[in-house]
Simulated assay, not measured.
Amino acid sequence: MSMQQSYHALSRLLEYPQEREELEISYDALAAYLRRSDIASSVHLFGEMLSGSTLSELQEDYVARFDFNPAAAPYLGHHLYGDNQKKGGYMIQVKQEYGRHDFEAPAEELPDHLGVVLAFLAHLASRGEDATRREFIEKLVLPGINKLLGSSVERDASPWLTLIEAAELLCSADCREEATC
């Protein structure tokens, strides 16, 4: 598995759960990449929840975790700027980067959703745009993930949080390859 595939797998895991088999495939791919890359993670807690839950339980837990808990919402702009004009500028900057690199964000999700951002990182990796990807991570991704983790860690022991932590670990490891972040 490659960095691109791991970003893609993590992106899929952070979407609203639709198919159990797809979740299992994505989780297995991500966990294998993290192990192979010697990235210590607690993502196994998500795997345990996944194996012990029905699809409807996962969907219910996803909604409770992300939709009804603003401190855990997977929207990076929200964590960086709250609801002010700076958030709008952030959203525009993210969308412009998507456009510059021929990435089509899903219409049903905001561009700063962590799952969409990770899909963009996978897109950049597939095109070999490593410098661009790392700069995007440094400027627009890691600051938001770190704020999200900071607002969630002390209050939340949800296995979903391990996916956010995995995103931080993956992005940080990606940047260490070039020492840019």
Rank of each mutant, 00 (worst) to 15 (best):
A173D: 13
V141T: 00
D61F: 01
G115A: 12
E21C: 03
I25G: 02
K147W: 07
V94I: 15
M3T: 13
L45C: 04
E60P: 00
L140E: 05
Y81H: 15
A167K: 11
A40F: 01
S53G: 06
S41N: 02
L10C: 07
A9M: 11
E24A: 04
E177T: 11
P74T: 00
M49D: 03
Y75V: 01
E135S: 15
V116W: 00
P111F: 02
R20N: 04
A167H: 10
H123M: 07
R155T: 11
E104V: 14
T162L: 03
R12E: 06
A64H: 10
K87L: 02
A122E: 11
L163E: 05
P17I: 08
L58A: 09
A105G: 02
E177G: 12
S2H: 11
E135R: 13
N69W: 01
R134C: 13
N69Q: 14
L121A: 05
A107Q: 11
L30T: 02
K147C: 12
M1E: 03
L34R: 07
Q4C: 05
A105L: 08
Q59I: 00
S53Q: 09
E177I: 04
N146H: 15
L149K: 14
H101D: 06
P70Q: 12
R36G: 14
K95M: 08
M1V: 06
G52V: 01
M1D: 03
V141N: 07
D28A: 15
A157D: 12
V116Y: 00
A29T: 12
A9F: 07
E154N: 09
K139R: 15
E154I: 04
L10E: 07
I39K: 04
H78T: 11
V43H: 02
L76D: 03
A157K: 13
D83R: 08
S6N: 11
T132D: 01
